[in-house]
């Protein structure tokens, strides 16, 4: 397991391979469906994203509400393909990694290589476990969206696996092919 303190260095972005497990610490921003639609509209109007985009990491999650005794609610990944149409625009703004689950479109995979960025997966459904990595959380945009609001999280040692690396490697393809026997 490779420990990474965000932001990623260029060397780390180029050296991480599809299938590598990472233990990620630092700041990430949550955004899912409706937040992506709004952010893309904001960019089209010439406005900026609700967080500093260069080197940012975006986590596709809509957490459950935090009970008063906890820092954060359960927060596993949501299916990433729904964010595919919006992803090249975020890469163009300088976002360097996305955390979600499930395969990406060919356009996104190509844009990841062009921008030397990564697509990482958290284990879908391990939401209670993943919430333990969140040390600070606050809403920074679209509070009216509830679970879909954009949040700034400080995470420590979140366990993730690289699915799409900056060289075009795809772990869903290579990982599954080695066990496929049809």
């Amino acid at each position: 397991m490779r420990k990474i303190s965000l932001p990623f260095t260029l060397e780390e972005l180029g050296g991480i391979r599809a299938g590598d497990w990472l233990s990620l610490s630092g700041v990430v921003y949550t955004a899912r469906d409706e937040a992506h639609r709004r952010m893309t509209l904001a960019l089209a109007r010439g406005e900026s994203l609700p967080f500093p985009a260069p080197d940012a990491v975006v986590y596709y999650t809509g957490p459950s509400p935090a009970p008063p005794r906890l820092i954060f609610g359960s927060a596993g990944p949501t299916s990433s393909y729904r964010m595919d149409p919006y992803t090249p625009a975020l890469l163009a703004q300088g976002v360097k990694a996305f955390i979600g689950k499930g395969p990406r479109s060919p356009e996104v995979r190509q844009a990841l290589v062009e921008h030397q960025a990564l697509y990482l997966a958290a284990v879908g459904g391990a939401a209670a476990l993943l919430s333990r990595a969140v040390r600070e959380a606050r809403i920074i945009a679209y509070p009216e969206l509830g679970p879909e609001a954009v949040r700034r999280l400080r995470i420590e040692d979140m366990e993730l696996v690289c699915i799409n690396d900056a060289r075009g490697g795809d772990w869903y393809v290579s990982g599954q092919n080695s066990w496929r026997s049809l």
Binding site: G62, T78, A126, A128, L129, R132
Partner: peptide
């Protein structure tokens, strides 16, 4: 582990309830 933690802490197994 996730299922055990959710049960002990009485928190959702998955954020998607």
């Amino acid at each position: 582990e996730n299922a055990g933690l959710a049960r002990r802490e009485n928190i959702p197994l998955c954020q998607d309830c």
